[in-house]
């Protein structure tokens, strides 16, 4: 009889969801999901990729921008990245350097070939549109876990894929355009599948969906299609990624203000 009871208790415990067993608060659960996602991307070193940005307005007009992006992983701080604009032709050769930071504002510089000068950008304004698209700088910059606080909401499948749904709240509320980001992360690989952005008055502003995930170096997943739809103004932007490469031997020297002038 005693044995039967203990078997029953063990069965009962086993049937409970893992989260309840650990008795974490939703905030702690949210954070641990975010940290796990970050951990899985650790150690990629550096990468390069080509990005095609397609802008669409409500009237059906389209416009394309081509950008090459290099990224360098930095230990104990945010990543460094360098973007070179190839089209539109008027901004060809313009290069954008970012040092993202876990704490405080990111550093940003823009090299303007027409002036042959490097200009620093006031990155407090990270909530603004990136190159006229529906992506804000804060949407595409390195998503360091320290930039948000978290809360696990629930688990729910999205298009047949089991997902965690967590909410992220910007730490720097004053300069962010959002009050919260509802984020779908798949359970298998901790990849972000969908994000809903809620504006300052807490209305749904935009939805981002990420597709075409591919794995590199047997470990790192990258989405190759990102669709951002602005529900309020009816405009949308698509990012298509190609030519994704890892471990190209990039170093700090490739990410300096002087290096901006050299890029072609």
């Amino acid at each position: 009889m005693k044995r039967f009871l203990s078997v029953c208790i063990i069965c009962l415990f086993l049937s409970l969801p893992a989260g309840v067993l650990r008795a974490d608060t939703p905030e702690e659960q949210g954070l641990s999901i975010a940290l796990e996602a970050e951990r899985r991307d650790d150690g990629f070193g550096d990468s390069t990729a080509d990005m095609k940005m397609i802008l669409k307005n409500r009237h059906g007009q389209e416009s394309v921008r081509l950008i090459r992006i290099k990224t360098l992983e930095v230990k104990d701080d945010g990543d460094k990245s360098l973007s070179v604009f190839d089209t539109p032709r008027d901004v060809k050769g313009t290069a954008f350097l970012t040092f993202s930071h876990k704490q405080g504002d990111d550093d940003q510089w823009l090299y303007l070939p027409a002036l042959k000068r490097v200009k620093r950008i006031n990155s407090r304004n990270k909530s603004g549109s990136f190159m006229g698209s529906e992506f804000a700088y804060e949407d595409i910059s390195s998503q360091e876990s320290e930039k948000y606080t978290y809360k696990w909401i629930k688990n729910e499948p999205l298009n047949g894929v089991d997902c965690f749904i967590i909410e992220r709240y910007p730490v720097d509320l004053k300069n962010s355009g959002y009050t919260r980001l509802l984020t779908w992360i798949d359970k298998d690989e901790y990849r972000v599948r969908k994000v809903e952005y809620y504006d300052r008055k807490k209305s749904l502003l935009k939805t981002l969906t990420l597709d075409g995930y591919q794995q590199y170096l047997g470990k790192y997943w990258r989405a190759h299609e990102m669709h951002m739809v602005n529900h309020q103004n009816g405009k949308s932007t698509v990012l298509l990624w190609t030519n994704q490469q890892f471990r190209q031997g990039l170093s700090e020297l490739d990410f300096t203000q002087n290096s901006l002038k050299r890029v072609r």
Binding site: L55, K56, N57, Q61, E62, S63, F85, P88, D90, V91, T94, F96, Q108, L110, L112, P113, A114, L115, K119, I121, N122, R124, N125, S127, G128, S129, F130, M131, G132, A136, Y137, N175, S176, G177, D199, R200, N233, K235
Partner: peptide, 29 residues
């Protein structure tokens, strides 16, 4: 036109939420 475009790019990258120029410039400029 390069200078105009690059000045504008720099400016647009410096603008905060809700104050962009998308209400004055169409998508393909």
């Amino acid at each position: 036109r390069e200078l105009a475009a690059q000045n504008m790019l720099l400016y647009e990258m410096s603008l905060p939420f809700g104050l962009d120029l998308n209400n004055q410039i169409n998508v393909d400029k």
